[in-house]
Design a binder for these strands. Sequence first.
DNA 1: TGCCAGGCCCTCTTTAGGGCCTT
Length: 204
Amino acid sequence: MDVVAVIDFETTGLSPAQGDRATEIAAVILENGKVVDRYQSLMNAGVGIPSFIEELTGISNAMIRQAPTATVVMREVSDFVSDIPLVAHNASFDCKFWDAEVARINLTRRQEFACSLLLSRRLLPLAPSHKLGALVEYANLPLAGRAHRALADAEMAASLLTHLADELRSRYGIRQVTHELLRKIQGIPKAKVEQVLAKHQQSQ
DNA sequence: TGCCAGGCCCTCTTTAGGGCCTT
């Protein structure tokens, strides 16, 4: 598979348009099914964390007060991933926070996101749930730490992505799993996935 | 004043509604 950077944000809520901000980010570089590098940091965006989010993530206001600023962290993580294609679980969420946070430091995203949630709905349609934790359990993948912390979730999403790439190889004979192919697959209507991937296999 | 995310995906759909997923 292409080298990709799997990222995960923890935030104060669901919508940067409603004033929510990032509190933690992690990025892992995935190369040939192995995590070869990691970045993780809490960040202080100068906003309070609601109590139910503190309970959900374990990230407290006290922890954030001691963290480097969002400006510093977003510069570092942008440098870390460079122009490597990005992946996240429910990427529409992480993409909107990524774009909002880098816009604050006058940067622009240089690459596309692929989404392990959309891919899982197509490649693991029988999973009882497509939440990240439920998919990790369904596919017998290793737990990486406390759920709802950025590095653990990024590591588990990376494991899931590797599993999905293995499925593409074993079930459809796809030899070269590229980020571009993942983006194509996640956009196939669910009812046509089998048909399109079978055709792709024949055209290789 | 009152409201407050948004995209995907299914279905008893398309002049719509509701569950899933992310924090």
